[in-house]
């Protein structure tokens, strides 16, 4: 059984996209260590509602680390201090009694704050819509081994496909670049035969959309890779660069 901790919570409050935001401070008392970070916010929100105050708005959905909805920049890390985990998989036992925990929304020009800790991540959907799919008819389920794919290639494609599109890479990047996200989405197809047919078009249109939406230029600092809850490798970024340069040279 984890022990209970008491701590100070500094949360970014902002009433709307155009309003000026500021930090609000809350004292949290006797929170059990096995409470998840989002449950802790639920506890706080319940007490705020009981007092007749506005609850803190934050994104969440599956609460098991696969939907990519939760965000939160906790103590200088997207998804908090745990590695390879989303905010919903972060537990209060990570913190010590008497800590001050700072919670901020993703900060990026392409992800404007909607309210409090919730940001607008439709930019990622737009990039996906620009080419993050396979549009050719690949037929029914093929027989196993009808299309031989190497084990290491299959693994790499699967690792790239693990990206949940949460935007932690953009939040962590000092350049506000979305290259890790775009490269994962391009790589998961570019590595496999079904995706190769449209690989050149996909790389070009997704990068063009990314640039158009105002994401920054990657300078290979590797902050994205370090903070990604799915541990997506920057070797995907090299692949995206390769695919993009190859496609443009062919034109």
């Amino acid at each position: 059984m984890d022990k209970n901790i008491s701590f100070t919570l500094k949360v970014w409050r902002q009433r709307g996209p155009k309003e000026k935001g500021a930090f609000a401070t809350y004292q949290m008392k006797d929170i059990p260590g096995d409470t998840s970070f989002l449950e802790m916010l639920d506890i706080l929100n319940e007490s705020l509602v009981n007092k007749g105050e506005e609850p803190i708005v934050f994104d969440h959905d599956c609460r098991e680390g696969i939907c990519g909805m939760c965000s939160l920049y906790v103590n200088g890390h997207p998804h908090g201090p745990a590695t390879g985990a989303t905010t919903c998989q972060l537990y209060m036992r990570r913190f010590k009694d008497g800590d001050t925990i700072t919670v901020e929304p993703w900060r990026s020009a392409a992800f404007p704050v909607i309210r409090d800790l919730m940001v607008d991540r439709t930019a990622f959907d737009k990039i996906q819509q620009a080419g993050g799919y396979v549009s050719i008819n690949t037929g029914g389920m093929p027989d196993a081994n009808a299309i031989p794919i190497g084990k290491d290639v299959a693994e790499e494609a699967m690792d790239a496909a693990a990206c949940v599109g949460c935007g932690a890479c953009v939040a962590a990047c000092k350049n506000g670049s979305a290259m890790l996200f775009v490269s994962a989405k391009v790589s998961q197809f570019a590595l496999l035969p079904q995706g190769k047919a449209e690989a050149a078009k996909r790389a070009k249109s997704m990068v063009a959309k990314m640039d158009e939406l105002g994401f920054g230029n990657c300078t290979n600092t590797r902050a994205c890779e370090a903070e990604c809850p799915k541990c997506i490798s920057i070797s995907n970024i090299a692949r995206l660069n390769r695919e993009f340069i190859k496609a443009k040279l062919k034109d």
């Binding site: 900060r107 020009a109 962590a172 506000g176 105002g214 902050a223 890779e225 370090a226």
Partner: peptide, 22 residues
């Protein structure tokens, strides 16, 4: 300049250099 713009006007109050970042 483009990257500064992409970062947005509001910075983080609490920042840490992630491990593996030179």
């Amino acid at each position: 300049l483009q990257n500064k713009k992409a970062r947005g006007g509001q910075g983080y109050a609490y920042t840490v250099k992630p491990k593996n970042v030179e």
